[in-house]
Design a protein around this nucleic acid. Structure first.
Lengths: 162, 162
DNA sequence: TATTGTTATACTCTATAACTATA
DNA sequence: TATAGTTATAGAGTATAACAATA
């Protein structure tokens, strides 16, 4: 489960490391980058994912629980806290009197835009050490992996946003 | 912050996607893979990281808090819960009567070995769609990114294990 | 005084079970 | 009966502040 070296010396001297370890480290690096940008706005990863989802939909609570892979009762609390901060709001469904739809407020939309753009900038900087050509090649590999996984597992791409 | 598509159709049809989005999705995929394997043994990511760190050290509580990037009071609870499950134990420091060292028990060591090996197998499968040669190339890119980041930010590689 | 670690407290996040209201 | 959602409850994980013991 990734290298057991802590000072990075192995990395720096060899310039290469085990494939699985490297990918794991990269994943945690990128995950941490998002976590830090989000926390600058007092957002957790899950709150950020919630806002990300709401950028282009107005799902019900049950749909949200599926998108976030959480129990519906967890989503109740999640949306409660986001609503208390004025980031989202519940609106009654027009077709089902049991149901609500969750919408981003303008505040919430502005916030998720900021976090997203900063995160993207961070990752871009991270990739600056690769030439545009190499970035392209790497992206192709990454895409292939994601596509293969998506095809085998249906839809579950673990997207930040959904 | 990664694609806003949820059905994977864009992925599947184009076979390629934005570099930042792709990397973000891959990161969350791998993060999720570890999360699932860990949860099979009722371990959270942070508990797994704790065990991972302890595979090759016996740090004090303060050192642990730095390695995990948590407050020392958070580490107290973390180690409490792991110790309650018999995965780790506190031993008094021989040189400083204020301090303790945290050690893996044999149970904890067996557990972290299992999680690590399953996680590695998962990632290996994930990469099966790439030829060995392409895996090598991708690993080189990943290494370059990690090295560049490590050089600019000291030691913080966000390793699962530390 | 500074450092190591714990305790008290409060909040977020999560799940299970029981509940209400509507379909 | 089944579904959409909330409430009650319990526990993990986190931080801040105050504390004890040792350096």
């Amino acid at each position: 489960m990734t290298s057991r070296k802590s000072d990075g010396s192995e990395l720096a001297t060899t310039g290469s490391l085990d494939t699985v370890d490297g990918l794991a480290q990269l994943s945690f690096l990128i995950y941490g980058v998002l976590e830090r940008r989000a926390s600058e706005h007092d957002l957790s990863i899950v709150q950020t994912r919630l806002l990300g989802i709401l950028r282009d939909r107005e799902p019900g609570m049950h749909e949200l629980s599926q998108l976030l892979d959480l129990d519906k009762s967890s989503v109740t609390g999640l949306v409660d806290r986001a609503a208390r901060r004025g980031l989202v709001k519940r609106v009654p469904s027009t077709t089902d009197r049991r149901a609500v739809r969750v919408k981003l407020t303008s505040t919430g939309r502005a916030l998720v835009r900021q976090v997203a753009s900063r995160f993207e900038a961070d990752v871009t900087v991270l990739l600056d050490c690769l030439t545009p050509r190499d970035q392209q090649v790497m992206t192709a590999f990454v895409s292939r992996v994601l596509v293969a996984h998506a095809l085998e597992h249906g839809v579950d791409l673990f997207d930040v946003a959904r």
